[in-house]
C-alpha cells in the first residue's frame, strides 16, 4: 500500500529517530512510504490560540501537499485530529472544504493505520522490560482511538505493560498552555510523573511526541530513571541479535 507520511514538525526537528522508526515500521508491513517534502505544520498552535486566519493558511498548504496521497499516516493522534478539523475550519469556503474532507477521510494516526487498515495486531517487536502507556487526550477523545495502541503493545514480546493510574487525565502539555499557564501545567505533569512512578515501570510509552516532550522533559529535569519511548520505537524494536524480518 502506498502511504504518504506526515511526520509532524516536532518529530521532524526534535525526534528524527522516531521518524526513522515510523518509516521502517511501515515498510516492514509492506507499505511504500512517500514523504511529501513540502509539508510543514498542521496549524494547531494557531488554531488552538484562536488565530484561525493563520491556521487556515497552514491548513490549505497541507491540503495541497497531501492532495495526491492515497493514505496519510502520522505518528501523532493530535496532529491527525487537526487534519480532521480542517473541514470545519474551512466550512465557509466550499471548494476548500471539500478538499479538506478528502484529506480528513484518508488520514490515520500510525497505530490506528496499522491496526484498522492493515489489520496488524503483532508487529513482531521484542522489548524486554516493564512499561506503562500514556493515553494521549486527542488520540482518545478527538480521534476516538482507544484500542489500537493497546492491542499492538500487548503483542510486543517480552514487554510487561502496567496500567497507568488516572490515565484519563491530561499530562499538562496542551501546546501553548504549557507555557502560558505554566503554574498549572507544572502541577499536571508532576501528577502524571507521580502516577508513572507508581507503576514502577522502566519505560514510558506514548503515541504523541507533544505529550512525550512534556512528560519526558519533566522526567529528565527531575532525573528520574525512566526511559521515554514513542510507540513507533517500541513497535519497531528488535532485541540485539535478532535479524530483521
Amino acid at each position: 500500500m502506498k502511504v504518504s507520511l506526515f511526520i509532524t514538525c516536532l518529530t521532524d526537528i526534535f525526534y528524527p529517530d522516531v521518524g526513522k522508526n515510523v518509516v521502517e515500521l511501515l515498510e516492514r508491513h509492506g507499505c511504500e512510504v512517500d514523504f511529501p517534502e513540502k509539508q510543514t505544520c498542521c496549524g494547531q498552535p494557531a488554531f488552538n490560540s484562536g488565530y484561525h486566519k493563520d491556521a487556515k493558511k497552514a491548513a490549505k498548504h497541507m491540503i495541497e501537499t497531501f492532495e495526491h496521497a492515497e493514505k496519510v499516516v502520522t505518528p501523532s493522534g493530535s496532529c491527525a485530529a487537526m487534519f480532521k478539523e480542517y473541514p470545519s475550519l474551512l466550512k465557509d469556503e466550499i471548494r476548500w472544504r471539500e478538499r479538506a474532507e478528502q484529506l480528513a477521510g484518508k488520514t490515520y494516526e500510525l497505530t490506528q493505520f496499522l491496526y484498522r487498515v492493515l489489520h496488524v495486531t503483532n508487529t513482531g517487536a521484542t522489548l524486554q522490560g516493564v512499561a506503562t502507556y500514556h493515553t494521549s487526550c486527542h488520540m482518545v477523545r478527538l480521534l476516538g482511538e482507544t484500542e489500537a495502541p493497546y492491542v499492538l503493545l500487548s503483542n510486543v514480546q517480552g514487554l510487561e505493560l502496567k496500567e497507568l493510574p488516572n490515565k484519563q487525565n491530561c499530562c499538562g502539555f496542551g501546546g501553548t498552555f504549557a507555557v502560558k499557564m505554566s503554574t498549572i501545567s507544572e502541577q499536571m505533569v508532576d501528577e502524571k510523573v507521580e502516577h508513572i512512578e507508581e507503576t514502577e515501570a522502566d519505560v514510558l510509552i506514548g503515541a504523541d511526541n507533544g505529550c512525550l516532550m512534556n512528560i519526558g522533559g519533566r522526567i529528565q529535569k527531575e532525573k528520574k530513571p525512566i526511559k521515554v519511548m514513542h510507540i513507533a520505537e517500541v513497535l519497531n524494536h528488535r532485541e540485539m541479535g535478532g535479524g530483521d524480518v
Partner: peptide, 29 residues
C-alpha cells in the same frame, strides 16, 4: 535545561529537547 525567551517558561519545569544534527527530512533526502 535553561532556555532563552519564551523557552524559559518551559525549561523552568521541563528540559527541552536539544537540536539534532540531522532532521528527519534530511535523513529521508
Amino acid at each position: 535545561e535553561k532556555g532563552p525567551g519564551p523557552l524559559k517558561e518551559w525549561t523552568a519545569i521541563r528540559d527541552f529537547p536539544g537540536p539534532k544534527k540531522e532532521r528527519f527530512r534530511d535523513w529521508v533526502k
